[in-house]
Design a binder for these strands. Structure first.
Lengths: 364, 364
DNA sequence: TATATTTGCGCAATCGTTTGTGCTATTTTT
DNA sequence: AAAAATAGCACAAACGATTGCGCAAATATA
């Protein structure tokens, strides 16, 4: 059924070596006669021969396979990223081994071992958790690793990410310039660098505008539920923020659900700006104003960096941040200065609202 | 750097065979003494040994790898499907090789060859195009193939799909029962079975209600653009339908865009029902009424069927259709009988509007 | 014609496992 | 104490490719 070099060789009365040399394009190099070469090629074509990549890989110590560790394909952000990465890898003649870590750190760590066992030639990974030892070990001792989207603070592993600080800062500025003074922020996983950078941008923008007294940072997951629950809590406060900065697409969905359940409307009663872009956001009511990450560019660049190392033209470690852009929807209300001023006085939100010990130092 | 059986064997002064037998759990079967076994295990653990799956695969003729051919990970419908499939495969100790065919038939066909070259143990595929020869050949001569979502009319290849006929029928019924009499349908790829089944359901529902005279079927792609352009055309007609049945999530987005650009509103001016479910649809204005396909169940079942064959407990070919459910949003207006009647008289859309020759016989 | 060179190809080792078979040393049986 | 049984392990072939080296025949050189 499955042809191999020796079946062809036997039929032609030549050696396996000869067949191999012809079919791998080394006929000239090894002085195989044109006659023989032609014979072999024709036979191979006729019987529809395809080499066993397994055997090739074992021999060449090179699998032509890249490993992709993604936190959740069900999230359109990562799905889009994966889509671009997979196509890009494919266009270079490699295939992709995908593991969905489901945002679980032990899945993530095991993922690396599995990739090593399968001897991928390189790994693209979106980290889960803050422990960089395994990826670093893999990168040093085995194959190149490039991080995408998230990265480790204290590590020299190369990564490609959005300039999340800028995203956080710009989004908050946009709200401030629209006259908002009580701006809440609902964040995602606190061990993730993008999250923390966004929060930092948020805080700096507030500080710059002397609005730090009203900083309110809640939440701990990039999920719909987290957005929903935290927004419920926020809405039950005596004094509400006039705007919310949701640090991911899913968080925004949860926020919207909570707002809707409270019979409030965006942006009339409360403004919303979200991180992450997704085509559906244009069709929502209202269309969501959002910080769009350059997903495609990130994916392309990460793949490029990886192949540079896989194929040996190794540049030093690169840690790249690409600028996000803001897509303006209609979810941010422009407050008249009068209203904004008025609102400000009755707002007494204070530091105690931040209960996470880990966050205290970020906020402090 | 990378440990292997012989490096361990050398260090311990035993044979590669012995190490292999211990580490693959066959110590007892081959009467390796407990002492030796323990020694080997400890050494393996200490040096962090992981077997080369490549070598194992070559020897065992089994790669513990499943191939997944998906048309577009950028589409949330397929992304969700892939997510479930990949997790399920992972939970069985296999990994997944993913190829995004980008809705291109030649990518799709090449995909099979690549999968064969890499000797996957089985293939899950969402077909592109109507030519079933390659998948059938692969299924017969190489490894089990299970189709998901789409399938081939004339083939006995096993598949798992939605009962698309029922989906098309139910959606149309819902519109009819809401009083609509001029119902347009914007379809996707005409070579795809789900599409044609949906259209058949639509037509049968219309026929049953004596509304076939108003059948209007347009479009040819499961894309936003197709939905947009076709809806533009429909809106430029002298007599507009009162409701549109969009045969996919992306088509609906295009339809909404066209409607918005015409300064019309859903459902006040025109009703919409869509195929495919996606969480964002609940947050749109209005929330979209839609036919939800049991994506997760389909993915689970397809994986289950595949493994039954991969692991030898081969049941005969199964061709399964799972029932869709309707999720009610607020995008369908209930027309009062008077209005519905009134509208009917001024509607003169006829058969000539259907220009695709291929479709003539479906429609006829 | 004898020697040197080139042409054309095959041998055999190798990548890292798995596994049927067989060999020796120990233990059990009679 | 001799024969039989068993325990404990190693040899070597195989999976399907790649590649350094070498050998014989054909051709070129002297």
């Amino acid at each position: 059924m499955k042809e191999n070099l020796s079946s062809i060789a036997a039929r032609l009365g030549v050696s396996v070596t000869t067949v191999s040399r012809v079919l791998s394009g080394n006929a000239a190099k090894y002085r195989i006669s044109e006659d023989t070469a032609k014979k072999v090629q024709e036979e191979a074509a006729k019987c529809n021969y395809a080499p066993s990549i397994l055997a090739q890989s074992l021999r060449r110590q090179q699998t032509k396979t890249i490993g992709l560790l993604t936190p959740s394909l069900a999230n359109p952000y990562f799905a889009e990223m994966a889509s671009v990465i997979i196509s890009e890898i494919h266009s270079r003649g490699y295939t992709t081994l995908v593991i969905d870590t489901m945002e679980d750190e032990s899945n993530y760590k095991n993922g690396f071992n599995q990739m090593i066992s399968r001897q991928v030639d390189g790994i693209l990974a979106v980290p889960c958790g803050k422990d960089s030892t395994i990826p670093e070990l893999v990168n040093q001792d085995y194959v190149p690793v490039i991080l995408v989207d998230r990265y480790y603070e204290d590590s020299s592993l190369p990564y490609v990410t959005t300039n999340n600080y800028k995203g956080g800062y710009d989004a908050t500025r946009l709200l401030i310039e629209a006259g908002h003074k009580r701006i809440a922020c609902i964040q995602g996983v606190r061990s993730s660098t993008p999250n923390n950078e966004r929060v930092r941008g948020y805080r700096d923008a507030l500080a710059e505008a002397n609005l730090s007294d009203f900083a309110l940072i809640a939440g701990n997951e990039f999920s719909i539920q987290n957005g929903y629950l935290e927004m419920k809590l926020i809405l039950s406060r005596p004094v509400r923020p006039s705007a919310v900065f949701a640090l991911s697409n899913n968080i925004s969905l949860g926020v919207l659900k909570a707002i809707k359940e409270a019979s409030l409307r965006v942006p009339e009663h409360i403004s919303l700006i979200s991180f992450d872009n997704y085509s559906y956001m244009d069709y929502m009511e209202p269309p969501i104003t959002r910080v769009s990450q350059p997903v495609e560019d990130m994916a392309l660049l990460a793949t490029k960096l990886l192949f540079a190392r896989v194929e040996g033209i190794s540049p030093g470690a690169s840690q790249l941040r690409l600028s996000p852009t803001i897509i303006r929807g209609e979810s941010v209300a422009r407050l008249s200065p009068a209203v904004a001023g008025a609102l400000r006085t009755d707002f007494q939100m204070d530091r105690e609202t931040i209960q996470d010990p880990e966050l205290q130092d970020i906020i402090s």
